[in-house]
Design a binder for these strands. Structure first.
Lengths: 347, 347
DNA sequence: ATGAAAGCGCTAACAC
DNA sequence: GTGTTAGCGCTTTCAT
C-alpha cells in the first residue's frame, strides 16, 4: 500500500482491562471465556472494566495462540443464486449460534477461481471449509487434504467425498420424477435438457430419466436440448409437438424451461395436464404462481447448510461421532401440471 | 470445548520455508509480499521452498502484527433475499480483486441481533464494516464510532450517514413512478402499501407518492393496504375496483403485490393498461415474464455492493480521496402494464 | 538486499 | 481461583 494508508488505531486490550479491574490479564481472559471459572467478585469487576473501556476482544490474537480462528470458509459459485444463498443462510443460522463466523468466497463457476479463492481463504486458517460437491480440480483436493482442514462437500451426494458430505442424489430425482409421471398416467415421456451446457447434476437427472423410462415404459430416451431459459422451454415444446405428438409428458431439467413449456402449451392450445403433463426441478417461485401450477422437485437448500454446519460443529467440538455423509433427500411437489386423473387419461 | 476437541495441526510456517530456502524468515516474508524487493536468486529459492513444503501463509499471524486483517465485515438481514445476495456478490466481486475477504453476518431483520452479530464480527478486526442503512440501534452507531472502523451504510441514501453511504432515494422512486404514470395518462392513482408492516423505505415511497399526486394531479392520496404478497395484491385490486372505479392507475409498494394486481385485473376483465395501469418496485423476475410485462423500478443492487467495496478500498489504500456518499439512482423500467397510448386514453 | 530483535494481543501450560 | 511465563507466526523496525 501507499504512504497514506490508514494506520488502524490501537484498541483497548486485555491488559488495559486487567489494569482497570486490578487483576492479571489472564484472569480477564478467563472471566470472559468461562465466567464460572473465576470468583463472583472478580467477574463483576472485570465486567465493569470491560464496559467502562468499551473493550472489544481480539479474536485474531486469541486465535493465533489457540489455533482456533472460529471461522468457517465457504466457497460457492455465486451468492446471486437462490440455491447457494439459501445454503449459506442455513450455514450462518447454525454457525453463529456456536460462535463461528463465515468467510465467503465466490468462484463464479470457474474451477481455477475456486482453487485460487479457496487457497486465499485458507490463509485465514478456517476451522473448516464448505464447498459444493463437484468437479473441483485435483489440486484443490490435494491442498485441502494437506492442510488437513475438515471439508464438507454440499449439494450433491457423493460416492467418494473428500471428507464430509451433505446433499441429495440427482439420480434419485430423475427416477422419482419419471415414476411420478408414470403413476399419473404418462406413456411417452420426453426430457428437455441443456445440451452442451449440461453439468454433472443435469447429466445425473437425464441418465436416471433414461433408465427409468426404459424400466417402467420400455421406452427409449427422447431428449430435446434447449437453452436453460423460459424461451428455451418454449422452443423445445414447439419441436416436441411437431416431431413426436405422441409424447404425453415432459420432464424438464429445470423449472425455467418447464415454465416455458407451460406457456407454449397454453398458446398452442395443448391442454396441461390432460393432453400433456409437465414437471421441472428446483421449485422456482415462478412455478408456484403460474397456472396450472408446475409440478417440481424441491431440495431442502437451507437444511443442507444447517446440516453442514452441524457436522462441522460436531467435528470441531467434543462430540465427533456424527455421520460423515448425509442424504437429505428431496421432495416431488405435485401440482396441477401433472394432476391427470384416470378420466383425463382415458380421453 | 470438551476432551476430544480436534487439536488443529501445526502448519508449515515461514521459518520452515526459510530454513529450506537457506535464508531468514524475514527474507521469505519479503519475497512473498514484494517479490521485487529481493534478489532474483532469492526469490526463486523461496518459491521453490514454498512449493516443496506446500506452505500456506498465515494471515492471522501477519494481521496481528500489522493490524491489517484483510477482512471486511458485512451484516445484512438475510442472505436469502436476492436484494442482499446481489449486494454481497457485488462486494465480493471487487474486494477479492484487492485481496480482501468478506465475513458475513445476518441479523434476521432484528436490530438486537444486528447489534450482537456486528459486535461479534468486530472481534475479528475487520478493516471496514458494511451494513444496510436503517434503523440500527444508537448503541451500534456508538460502538462503530468508538472502534473507529470505516463503515459503509448501503441501500438507502442517508441524510446523516455514520460514515460512508451508497444507495438511492426511495422518495425519488415514489416521485419518478408517479410522474411516469401521469405522463402515460393516469388521472387518478392509488397506492398499494403494506399497512402496519411498513418500513422506512416503504414509507418514503408512499410519502413521495402522496406529494407527487398532490402536485401533479391535485389529488389526495388513496392508499390500500395489503399483505406484501401476490394474494395481497389481488385482494387490494378487488377492493379498488369496488370502492373507487375511477382509479386508472395503481402504484404498488413492491412487485409481488403488483403481480397480484395484474393477475386479478386479468380475471376481473379489467384491461391493463387501457383501463388500468400498474407499476411496482424491485424488478422481480416475475414481472419480466408475466403478460403484460410489469412496469417497475430497478435498483442496481450489485452495483451498490461494488461501489461500497470501491469506497472501502480507496479509504484503506492510499487514495482516500473519493466521495463519502454516492447516490446510485435507479431506473424506471417501462413495460406493457403502463404502455398506454393517447388512443387508449381517449377511449 | 538481508538479517536480528522485538512484539502484536492473546491463551496454553504450569505454578501456587 | 489466580498469576507467571512463554510463545502462536508473522511483520515492524532498525541495523548492516
Amino acid at each position: 500500500m501507499g504512504p497514506a494508508a490508514a494506520k488502524p488505531a490501537r484498541h483497548t486490550n486485555l491488559t488495559d482491562v486487567a489494569r482497570r479491574a486490578g487483576v492479571s490479564s489472564m484472569t480477564v481472559s478467563r472471566a470472559l471465556r468461562r465466567p464460572e471459572s473465576v470468583s463472583e467478585d472478580t467477574r463483576r469487576r472485570v465486567e465493569r472494566a470491560v464496559a467502562a473501556l468499551g473493550y472489544v476482544p481480539n479474536n485474531i490474537a486469541g486465535g493465533l495462540r489457540s489455533r482456533r480462528s472460529r471461522t468457517i470458509a465457504c466457497v460457492i459459485p455465486t451468492i446471486a443464486s437462490p440455491v447457494f444463498a439459501n445454503v449459506v443462510q442455513g450455514l450462518t443460522d447454525v454457525l453463529y449460534g456456536h460462535d463461528y463466523r463465515v468467510v465467503l468466497g465466490t468462484s463464479n463457476y470457474s474451477e481455477a477461481e475456486e482453487q485460487r479463492v479457496t487457497a486465499g481463504l485458507l490463509a485465514h486458517r478456517p476451522e473448516a471449509v464448505v464447498l459444493p460437491a463437484g468437479d473441483h480440480r485435483r489440486e484443490l483436493g490435494r491442498l485441502l487434504k494437506r492442510v488437513g482442514v475438515p471439508v464438507v462437500e454440499i449439494w450433491e451426494r457423493l460416492e467418494n467425498p473428500v471428507d464430509m458430505n451433505v446433499g441429495f442424489s440427482n439420480r434419485d430425482v430423475g427416477a422419482a420424477v419419471v415414476t411420478h409421471l408414470v403413476e399419473r398416467g404418462a406413456r411417452r415421456i420426453a426430457f428437455v435438457g441443456m445440451g452442451a451446457d449440461e453439468h454433472a447434476r443435469a447429466r445425473a437427472r437425464r441418465e436416471a430419466y433414461a433408465e427409468t423410462v426404459a424400466r417402467l415404459l420400455d421406452q427409449k430416451p427422447i431428449v430435446f436440448d434447449a437453452p436453460f431459459t423460459i424461451d428455451g422451454g418454449r422452443a423445445a415444446l414447439a419441436r416436441i409437438l411437431r416431431d413426436d405428438p405422441a409424447i404425453d409428458a415432459v420432464f424438464c431439467v429445470g423449472d425455467l424451461p418447464a415454465v416455458g413449456v407451460l406457456l407454449e402449451a397454453h398458446e398452442a392450445g395443448c391442454a396441461v395436464p390432460q393432453r400433456l403433463m409437465v414437471a421441472g426441478f428446483g421449485d422456482h417461485e415462478f412455478g408456484r404462481q403460474i397456472r396450472p401450477g408446475l409440478t417440481t422437485v424441491r431440495v431442502p437448500e437451507r437444511r443442507i447448510g444447517q446440516i453442514a454446519a452441524e457436522m462441522i460443529v460436531g467435528r470441531l467440538g467434543d462430540h465427533d461421532t456424527g455421520p460423515r455423509a448425509i442424504d437429505v433427500g428431496f421432495e416431488v411437489i405435485p401440482r396441477d401440471s401433472t394432476a391427470r386423473t384416470q378420466a383425463d387419461d382415458s380421453g
